[in-house]
């Protein structure tokens, strides 16, 4: 092969490899699915598994949140779809919500997911038009989760047992 071709090819390969390394250090993916999903998302070619998403949505609407999360995770294994991450965060909110107390573990996981969803949404604006949900906005769901994790005087208000799950 021509020396010049080898040199140009080596240069292109090196630049691509260096960019990939930089991307790994910035994004910190944990699984191979996250690596491949992240790379395809960066070129706009990432697609969720629609069948698994529909299954997850059906389970979510039947209040089977654990099963819904499994289906949503299968639908978006790389964690690159803002809408799916929103539903996962919402499922954590609903399964952690209680009339007398909130499950902090679920709320923390929900907060992680909604932060991820907001990061993924274009311009950080995440709106999910689902008439069966009470919260349609990523920021609103985030505020609800943060409020649930906060301990303040309102936690001791006996009237809170009458509040409604969103």
């Amino acid at each position: 092969m021509n020396d010049r071709v080898i040199r140009v090819f080596g240069l292109v390969v090196s630049i691509c490899y260096a960019t990939f390394i930089l991307w790994l250090y910035v994004r910190q993916p944990q699984t191979v699915a996250e690596v491949t999903g992240g790379l395809t998302a960066s070129v706009g070619a990432y697609r969720i598994n629609q069948q698994a998403f529909d299954d997850g949505l059906a389970l979510f609407r039947r209040d089977e949140f654990e099963a819904a999360r499994s289906a949503f995770d299968r639908a978006d294994p790389a964690g690159q779809d803002a809408r799916t991450q929103f539903y996962i965060a919402y499922s954590y909110y609903r399964s952690g919500w209680g009339r007398l107390y909130q499950d902090d573990e679920h709320f923390k996981k929900g907060l992680d997911r909604i932060d991820k969803a907001i990061d993924l949404a274009p311009g950080g604006r995440l709106v999910v038009e689902d008439p069966e949900l009470d919260i349609h906005n990523g920021d609103e769901l985030r505020a609800e989760l943060v409020q649930g994790l906060r301990t303040d005087a309102s936690d001791f208000n006996p009237m809170r047992v009458f509040r409604k799950r969103k």
Binding site: I6, F9, G10, V13, Y17, A18, I21
Partner: peptide, 22 residues
Amino acid sequence: KPATEALVLPLLLLTVALLGGV
């Protein structure tokens, strides 16, 4: 050799740069 300078060495060094932080 051009292949060593353009491909082998950069890939070796960049692999070290990648794995050094794992």
